[in-house]
Each structure stands twice: as structure tokens, then as C-alpha cells.
Amino acid sequence: MLFEIKNKIDEITYLCDTVKAYCNSNDISDEKYHDIVLILDEMVTNIIMYAYPDGGEHVFSVEIEKTNDSYVNITITDNGIAFDPLAKDDPITSLDIEEREIGGLGIFLVKQLSECIEYSRIDDHNKLNIKVAIVKKEENHGSQERK
């Protein structure tokens, strides 16, 4: 499914509703909806906030495609300023609360939640391909040690 997003932060609501409807009609679990919508929120927010410094109204495209029972492919294409999200350093997650920096977590979370991410700059467009696994992985993300 291909849809367009304007560079306005209110569009996140439309994005979430659209992703929710797509997941519901494609038998994608609530847990995976959570991952997909969080990935899209982070990347789309980045584009809305930083890709168009001229401040004018722009539109960019988002595509979600369930390729088979195992994966969803997300493609985000914008014609804003060149930005490679993979070039950014990951935050250091082992620091104490006093030393932790406020910010910089978004792209890191996207990396954690996705199977692979590819960035390319083609014909003045940023193109981001993100592959998300929609079957439950064997690894135990969720083994919780709560106090």
C-alpha cells in the first residue's frame, strides 16, 4: 500500500491510523503493528522535522508491503535534503542516568526493531528500505526481569 504524507507533524495521526488499518487487514499481530508503527513514526518524524528546512509544504511517500508471511517491507521516499540515518552513531546505552544524553534514540530503536535497513540517495531523493520480521523470533526479547 502506497500513501502520501505531508511535512506536518499532525500527519502522524493519519500515519498511525493507516498503518493500523493495513495491519488489521493483513493479519499482522498487534505486537508487530507496534514495531511497524514505531519504526514509521521515528523515520517519518525525522523527515517532517528536518528534511525540508525551507519550511514550505511538501509531500513524501510511504509504502508498506507484506511480501510473504515472514516480512513487511517499508519504503520511505522523500525529496528533502540528503540524510543518511545510518551514518549517525548509536547512543551509548550503558551510561548512568546523569550521563545519558537526551535524544538520539529514534534511529537506534529503528535499527533494533528491523531486520535490515538500506539507505540510498537517488536523483535528489532519499530512499529508505526497511525490512521488518513479522513472525515471532526465537530470541527472547521479552524475558522480563522486573523487580
Binding site: 507496534h34 547512543p91 546505552t93 551510561l95 545519558r100 537506534f108 530503536l109 526493531l113 521479552g142 522486573r146
Partner: peptide, 14 residues
Amino acid sequence: KIFSVFKMSGFDKI
């Protein structure tokens, strides 16, 4: 699912 995001961020330790 929310806890896993806090854990990925290292926030469960701080």
C-alpha cells in the same frame, strides 16, 4: 512491547 523499547534503550538499567 513497551518494556522491550525501554530495555533496548538501556532505560531499564537507569
